[in-house]
């Protein structure tokens, strides 16, 4: 039997199941919830249930959404014909926050990772291929992360996409020195990418 009442012990146990939250953090959060007013607990519990009940995948782009299709797929002001392929909803959110892309998205829900048992059939690749003809796609932007697995996934997609639709424009997001980065600390591969994809500068 623990030192706290049974219900509090249970709450601590539930919090500690969350990623990045250990026993001590879980105890601190549980005690905070206990000390707070009833509204906070009700709001938290309600949100947890709501998120599980309402959030689902968009049937077109497979991002997380309340309504199907999602707000981006429904938005008629966004340009059709260009799809940006991302690994997960987090990457899509980052691109959306930048405000620099006004086309459509496709969320793969992972990258090819044989070590973790993730192959092509585990990603939303077939669904991407189906969208090519159905939506009259002219360009696919591959925005997977520049990791070993992200790069391999991009290479795999290039092959599949070019076989599926001749004349399709396939682009990869630029790789190189990040804003605020320091050339002294850059590795050989990053510098190679940065130099090979240099752009002309005009006054």
């Amino acid at each position: 039997m623990g030192i706290y009442p049974r219900s509090l012990e249970r709450l601590i146990k539930e919090f500690s199941r969350l990623p990045g939250i250990g026993q001590k953090s879980a105890t601190r959060v549980a005690l905070y919830v206990l000390r707070s007013n009833r509204e906070l607990a009700e709001g938290l519990a309600g949100s947890l249930i709501e998120v599980k009940e309402k959030i689902r995948f968009c049937s077109i782009c497979f991002t997380l959404t309340d309504d199907d299709p999602c707000s981006i797929c429904c938005n008629e002001n966004r340009s059709n014909g260009t799809i940006c392929v991302v690994e997960g909803p987090g990457e899509q959110l980052a691109l959306e926050e930048s405000g620099s892309f006004k086309g459509r998205y496709h969320v793969l829900h992972g990258v090819l990772s044989p070590l973790d048992g993730i192959g092509p059939e585990d990603l939303k690749i077939g669904e991407l291929l189906n969208r090519l003809d159905g939506e009259g796609i002219r360009e696919v932007i591959l925005a997977t992360n520049p990791t070993t697995e992200g790069e391999a996934t991009a290479s795999f997609l290039v092959k599949l996409l070019s076989e599926k639709k001749k004349g399709l424009k396939i682009t990869r997001i630029a790789l190189g020195v990040p804003m605020g980065g320091d050339l002294k600390y850059m590795d050989r591969m990053t510098l190679e990418h940065a130099l090979s994809s240099r752009t002309p500068v005009t006054p």
Partner: peptide, 13 residues
């Protein structure tokens, strides 16, 4: 970084 290992799925596998 062995860039060739990320050039296709068979090399990655």
């Amino acid at each position: 970084p062995f860039p060739g290992l990320r050039s296709d799925f068979s090399s990655l596998s």
